[in-house]
Amino acid sequence: TFELKGKVGKVVKIAEDHYLVEVEGDKWIAYSDEKLSLGDRVMVVDVDGLKLKVKRIP
């Protein structure tokens, strides 16, 4: 999972307290300090167990 840091993915689902992002064909639970929208491109900035911390990228 640490090899996911720096990888780019996209938001595929928005849940009440987390996001579902697809990175390299796999779906992961993710969270972010900013509000994300469906389809946003994101970069993995940290890995916390099986959850990814992501940030939006242009």
Rank of each mutant, 00 (worst) to 15 (best):
T1D: 15
F2I: 15
F2V: 15
L4A: 03
L4R: 01
L4N: 02
L4E: 15
K5G: 04
K5C: 15
G6D: 08
G6H: 01
K7T: 03
K7P: 00
V8N: 06
V8A: 06
K10E: 14
K10W: 09
V11E: 00
V11T: 11
V11G: 00
V12G: 07
V12A: 15
K13Y: 06
K13L: 10
I14E: 08
I14D: 04
A15P: 10
A15W: 11
E16V: 07
D17C: 12
D17H: 07
D17N: 10
H18M: 12
H18Y: 14
H18A: 11
Y19K: 04
L20Y: 05
L20V: 08
V21H: 00
V21Y: 01
V21M: 08
V21G: 01
V21N: 01
V21T: 10
E22A: 07
E22K: 05
E22D: 05
E22I: 05
V23Y: 00
E24K: 03
D26S: 11
D26F: 12
K27G: 08
I29Y: 09
I29M: 08
I29S: 13
A30R: 00
A30S: 09
A30W: 00
A30F: 01
A30M: 09
Y31R: 12
S32T: 07
D33N: 13
D33P: 09
E34D: 13
E34W: 07
E34A: 06
E34F: 07
K35P: 09
K35R: 09
L36G: 02
L36N: 03
L36E: 02
L36R: 02
S37E: 10
L38K: 07
L38G: 12
G39D: 15
G39C: 09
G39L: 11
G39Y: 08
D40A: 09
R41C: 10
R41Y: 13
R41H: 14
R41M: 15
V42F: 06
V42Y: 01
V42A: 13
M43Q: 08
M43G: 04
V44Y: 02
V44A: 02
V45L: 04
V45D: 14
V45H: 08
V45E: 15
D46A: 04
D46T: 03
D46H: 03
D48L: 09
D48E: 09
D48W: 13
D48K: 04
L50D: 07
L50C: 07
K51W: 06
K51N: 06
K51R: 08
K53N: 13
V54G: 01
V54N: 00
K55Q: 15
K55M: 15
K55L: 14
K55T: 09
I57C: 14
I57G: 05
P58G: 13
P58N: 05
